[in-house]
Amino acid sequence: MATVSLPPATAGTPAPAPGAQPLRRRRRRTPLQQLGRVAWWIGCIAISFATVMPFVWTLATSLKPPGEVLGSYLSIIPDRPTLENYVAVFTDTPFASYLGNSAYLAIAGTVTNLFFGALGGYSLAKLRFRGRTSVFAVFLGSMMVPGVITMVPTFLVLRHFPLAGGNDLFGDGGFGFINTFWAVILPGAAGPFAVFFMKQFFQSLPDELGEAARIDGAGEFRIFARVYLPLAKAGLAVLGVMTLQGGWNAFLWPLIVLNDERMLTVQVALSSFVNERTTDFGPLMAGTILTSVPMLVLFLVCQRWIIEGIAHIGSK
């Protein structure tokens, strides 16, 4: 199946002769086509309205003083814009440290996944060894297994990890990695998806590059780091953005393994806001904006990579 990066013109039909396009444009549309065009615009604008407006409205609410939040709840532009909701979020709760915790966990997970995913993907794509197809098949199969099945036992593996967090050699005595950032980082540090994704990427690069370097006597890690890795920047960027987003947005697992107030992620903290501040919409919306903005900005900057990375999955 064609990848999405192919310009549609090359996707099958012979391209129309240059000059044919403007000619066709100039032809008058039938009323039905006109109607279709108008309907297309209306449909697209309506859907965009539905996907974007809730964020605009959230932002507007977060900038309204308490009286206005419920008083003129539909207005998009606050009469008296204020940052007091944001100030309240940062002073009433250690929100800055929640943001820091989430950033730390997301970045750590991204760095490890990029490095080990690339190294492992390179191994599966470019090195020949017995067992490589089995490793790949098992990794691929594991991605189809619902995560819920490993939820309880993974918690126990972390809790009874030998020699961690006061545990003895047999994993007893302490709490292992529970309530440490390791409990979030370790299980996802080098996911099968990262390996799979990078393997697909390295496979599209020619073998000859490495063979030439091998003849020159370069070590295998050097070939990986100096020859192939620089060529995989695009793949790393897509994987990096997706991993960063996944790490920042993770909810259930941090909720399970991190209970210490000082270690909460921004998502877990925001979820308890929803329950504690059921009528306190200003600060709640301010917290929501603070939680969403980093990923929204990242998305708007890298949106082409992200969307093409996702579409790539569909075209495989």
């Binding site: 987003q245 920042w248 947005n249 998502q267 979820s271 917290g287």
Partner: peptide, 9 residues
């Protein structure tokens, strides 16, 4: 792009 928590909120 938004997390499930932000969406829920």
């Amino acid at each position: 792009v938004s997390s499930t928590v932000a969406t829920a909120s």
